[in-house]
């Protein structure tokens, strides 16, 4: 009987040494003991497919498709930041109300999508500057202060203007920010600019103005 126990013990040690402990790192795909219905025959987002030639489940959108969920983007002002004749808007489109809620949303989105390069203050001193992205400009230089809201919207939607060599230093963010979010970010960028180039006359609240004058 002793031998049987020895054999069992040996088997147990063998199993542990082959299978290892829990949670150890491994580059091998997980073992599926019972792969019941784990993998069903339907296509998943960003996954592969053997059905289509290019091997992916996500299908490219055929040209000319109009999304059923989104309204037709025929409002040039809202969707493209432009007048009907193609000049960038100078004021926010009528359907966008600039209020504290919009600015809060703008701040939230700006911190995620713009701050890594433009910095939390908009001074162009984001973290990537230390790693060699020296071309990121400040929003406060005289040319950028003069950008209209339509031009700011256009920069987010289509990226920065092409350099003479045809290279874009800032790529578009339209895939990450919805149209509403883009206007929110534009409003926030404007607010950031005001922190540097604003004057006393921009303060509309009389009591605030008084307080500011006193603190001077």
């Amino acid at each position: 009987m002793r031998h049987v126990y020895f054999a069992t013990f040996f088997l147990a040690v063998l199993t542990v040494s082959v299978l290892g402990f829990r949670g150890t790192r491994s580059t091998r795909p997980p073992i599926e003991l019972f792969p019941d219905m784990d993998h069903q025959a339907h296509l998943k987002p960003q996954a592969g497919s053997t059905f289509f030639d290019d091997g992916r489940a996500d299908r490219p959108i055929p040209p000319g498709t109009v999304a059923a969920s989104a309204p037709l983007d025929d409002d040039d002002g809202l969707y493209h930041g432009m007048d009907a004749d193609g000049t960038p808007l100078k004021a926010f489109p009528a359907t966008v109300t600039v209020d504290a809620k919009l600015l809060a949303r703008g701040q939230n989105r700006f911190t995620i999508y713009c701050a890594p390069c433009h910095g939390a203050l908009g001074d162009g001193q984001g973290i990537t500057k230390q790693y060699g992205m020296t071309t990121t400009p400040s929003y406060f230089d005289p040319r950028r202060v003069k950008l209209t809201v339509g031009e700011l919207f256009g920069t987010i939607t289509n990226g920065s203007p092409k350099t003479p060599e045809g290279k874009q230093n800032m790529l578009p963010y339209a895939d990450k920010l919805s149209v509403e979010d883009r206007w929110a970010v534009v409003a926030y960028v404007r607010a950031l600019q005001r922190t540097q180039v604003g004057t006393l006359n921009d303060v509309t609240d009389a009591a605030q103005k008084e307080a500011l004058l006193k603190s001077k």
């Binding site: 069992t8 199993t15 299978l19 829990r22 949670g23 790192r25 795909p29």
Partner: peptide
């Protein structure tokens, strides 16, 4: 007695190995 011991070891082993805690945790593909 031996069957009890064996059963104990086997269920401990299954408990330890037959769940995601062993199968999936730590999976870090190249």
């Amino acid at each position: 007695l031996y069957l009890f011991v064996l059963g104990g070891i086997a269920s401990a082993g299954i408990n330890y190995y037959a769940t995601n805690k062993w199968a999936n945790v730590g999976y870090a593909p190249v």
